[in-house]
Design a protein around this nucleic acid. Structure first.
Length: 673
RNA sequence: GCGCCCGUAGCUCAGCUGGAUAGAGCAUUUGGCUUCGAACCAAAGGGUCGGAGGUUCGAAUCCUUCCGGGCGCACCA
């Protein structure tokens, strides 16, 4: 509702500016005054105009205020306009009218045409997911929820995919471990998987340790380094080639680990639509089609001299500009160019990635994956790439906008892919390619010590230490979640011994997931999270459970009042609320309504900036506002029926919007806690 | 060396398309449960917004520069 009023106000003021001063401002700022007593919206537009019109800001504001006041009948919901401070235009809303509209759930819509692909998680299927992967998946899943159509907004058509690098070095390393350290064959690997399954052990945990061991093994014996490096390389080539026993072992293991990843993520309500695998990109020869296209478009060329002689290379972004600027001969070999095809004829990672991204935008002629069903969620199917797929199947490679949730260390490679698209003339695709970049999750030195690692003096002095799968150094996602559930469970057990055990566990899980997802979302993307158990295991203060608790409190009011949220909101439709809302005391109630009406605005901001943290902050602020309300007004004891109705409706609107906001964050509200 | 990111309260972080008195959580101190559940609320202390210049009516926010820290710059993936 706030956004609706904002939009109509901005349109009106633009019209006035054009008619009166013949100016158009591309970027009109609207903000909220520091105090609700000054109004609900503020426009500093007079300051901006002062320069251009050579007039005092206050004088301009006075003129604009008069114009707006005259047009008040066209501004639904606006009660008055006044000049404040050095030249602010402060807008006051008609509180009663606004409350009625908010209660009736009037709000601006969000959405549009086009298909949007969100890629996230993309964990190498050779080890357990850790907290860094959790940040990735939670960011991606939350963003996907903001985009998707639902019963609150029209939304955008969305596909969620999780890229699986099942033929890379990391999987190869685990295969080396199985074959050369454990002496496993294809058959005994099968037996191992069955045994782990039967004894309720996690294959991804098994691989976590094995991966760390084999990483050390490569360099453990000085005399064997070259030989072991060769084993590693041969294994990698065997995986890439396919159709051999080594590749079959890799497929068994990577698929088993992948299933574990899906389970882990499902514990956090994270689901996928499609799992494209590198093995199909290879066997279906995506690269061949891309290569032809790139040569045709002139972005890929063979280097004839210099250090990259005999490679096929591509210029990096900005090279043309540098050449023009420095006046170097454009015919000289570009030593800075990115190698796409090595002199031995094999393609690099970036080359494969370009092919994959051309496919995402539907720009790779004649190429698509085969599709097979892989996993069933309660409401939909997750598909996986395959060579000979089944029909019918959904299509994913036709995106109008893509979002790649990939950590900031991949900035350069991502920019290479975008540069390739742009160089090929696919400007629109390049513009609609969002590298949803985020910083890593590291461990505080204290946390590392708690986990039993010995630290060097240098590490001890750092504010954080990077996790390392290769060293087996990190916190596993399932372990953290288990700890969170245990902590929440013991709280629920003491608070609600009367509830059945199974239900207590369900509640504890909801709280644990709430704490974890909120924790990963409260930091903005480019902040390194220095992970610490003390903060992550907290259920108090700025946390998910704080918001969940506020919702539980609201629900208790309705239960005891023998009414519902919907009834409470409907009940105020015909009441005379003006006296209550406009009184001094009513201001804090009105502030709750106003904040509750901002959800659409927040979602739009999160989408525009690809920053879910704003919504997390908003959910917390709304809960804070509600808790304050809860403390100041005792709803059930209220004697005056009109006032009681308003208090009930206030609790209802706060609960409605908190629940929605949490829903977008992927957090459920427990019935009790 | 080049590129990107960060530096705000004791700690962890918001605020950064310039706007009214720089905010929150944690920690510390204090007060509040015979009340709709205290996983809560209220209050207090705590800030040269890394330093220095500049642009502007106005700078935590924009520009320049310096200092400190992180990450990335392969014919690895």
């Amino acid at each position: 509702m706030y956004r609706t009023i904002q939009q109509s106000l901005l349109a009106r003021i633009q019209a006035i500016l054009l008619a009166k001063y013949d100016v158009t401002l591309t970027n009109l700022v609207v903000e909220q005054p520091p105090n609700i007593a000054l109004g609900e919206l503020a426009l500093p537009v007079a300051f901006e105009l002062a320069k251009r019109l050579r007039k005092a800001p206050r004088a301009i504001a006075t003129e604009l205020a008069a114009e707006l006041t005259a047009a008040l009948s066209h501004l639904e919901g606006v009660a008055s306009v006044e000049v404040a401070g050095a030249g602010y235009l402060n807008i006051r809303l008609d509180r009663t009218a606004a409350v009625r509209r908010i209660a009736a759930d009037q709000h601006a819509d969000i959405g549009g045409p086009g298909f949007r692909l969100v890629e996230h998680t993309s964990i190498n299927p050779n080890k357990a997911a850790h907290i860094g992967h959790l940040r990735n998946a939670i960011l991606g899943d939350t963003f996907q929820r903001l985009l998707r159509p639902d019963n609150y907004k029209r939304g955008y058509e969305v596909g969620v995919q999780n890229y699986i690098d099942n033929t890379g070095v990391q999987v190869a390393d685990v295969v080396v471990g199985l074959v050369h350290l454990e002496g496993k064959t294809l058959d005994s690997t099968r037996e191992l998987l069955t045994e782990l399954l039967e004894t309720n052990q996690r294959i991804d945990f098994y691989c976590w340790d094995l991966y760390a061991r084999v990483s050390q093994w490569y360099t453990a014996d000085a005399g064997q380094i070259a030989a072991r490096k060769q084993i590693r390389l041969d294994t990698l080539h065997a995986l890439e080639a396919g159709n051999n026993e080594t590749a079959e072992i890799a497929d068994l293991i990577s698929t088993a680990v992948l299933r574990r990843h899906l389970d882990t993520m499902q514990r956090l309500s994270i689901e996928y639509d499609f799992l494209p695998r590198e093995s199909e990109i290879l066997t279906l020869h995506f690269w061949d089609a891309a290569r032809t296209l790139m040569i045709e478009k002139g972005v890929l060329y063979k280097e004839t001299a210099g250090k990259n002689k005999d490679c096929w290379v591509m210029r990096r972004a900005g090279t043309e500009a540098t050449i023009a600027e420095e006046g170097t001969d454009p015919n000289l070999p570009d030593e800075d160019a990115k190698v796409i095809v090595r002199s031995n004829g094999t393609v690099t990672y970036v080359g494969k990635d370009i092919a994959y991204h051309l496919w995402k935008f539907g720009l790779l002629p004649g190429k698509d994956f085969g599709y097979a069903k892989f996993h069933e969620y309660p409401t939909h199917t997750c598909w996986i790439s395959t060579v000979n797929g089944e029909t019918p199947h959904p299509f994913f490679g036709h995106a109008d906008h893509i979002y790649n949730v990939i950590d900031s260390r991949q900035n350069d490679p991502q920019n290479n892919v975008i540069a390739a698209l742009r160089g090929m003339g696919y400007t629109e695709a390049a513009d609609n390619y969002t590298h949803f970049s985020y910083e890593m999750v590291a461990l505080t030195p204290r946390c590392a010590i708690e986990l039993g690692y010995t630290l060097s003096d240098e590490d001890r002095g750092k504010s954080y230490i990077e996790v390392s799968g290769r060293k087996g150094f990190g916190v596993k996602a399932d372990d953290l979640l288990d700890q969170l559930i245990a902590a929440a469970k013991s709280e629920v057990d003491t608070r609600h011994p009367e509830i059945e055990a199974a239900e207590r566990l369900t509640i504890a899980t909801q709280i644990a997931v709430g704490a974890l997802r909120y924790f990963m979302l409260r930091f903005t993307r480019n902040t390194v999270i220095a992970f610490d158990f003390k903060d992550a295991l907290s259920f108090e203060g700025e946390t998910g459970p704080y918001v969940q608790y506020a919702i539980v409190r609201a629900a208790n009011i309705f239960r005891k009042a023998n009414t519902t949220e919907a009834e409470s909101l409907a009940a105020i439709a015909n009441l005379d609320l003006a006296n209550l809302l406009n009184a001094e005391e009513g201001s804090s109630l009105w502030e709750t309504w106003l904040l509750a009406s901002k959800l659409t605005l927040l979602i739009e901001q999160c989408i525009a900036t690809a920053e879910p943290a704003y919504l997390a902050k908003y959910a917390f602020q709304l809960a804070q506002q509600f808790n304050n309300f809860y403390h100041r007004h005792h709803v059930l004891n209220e004697a005056d029926p009109t006032r009681k109705a308003l208090l009930l409706a206030t609790a209802a609107v706060a609960q409605r919007e908190m629940t929605r906001a949490l829903g977008y964050l992927g957090i459920e509200a427990p019935p009790v806690m």
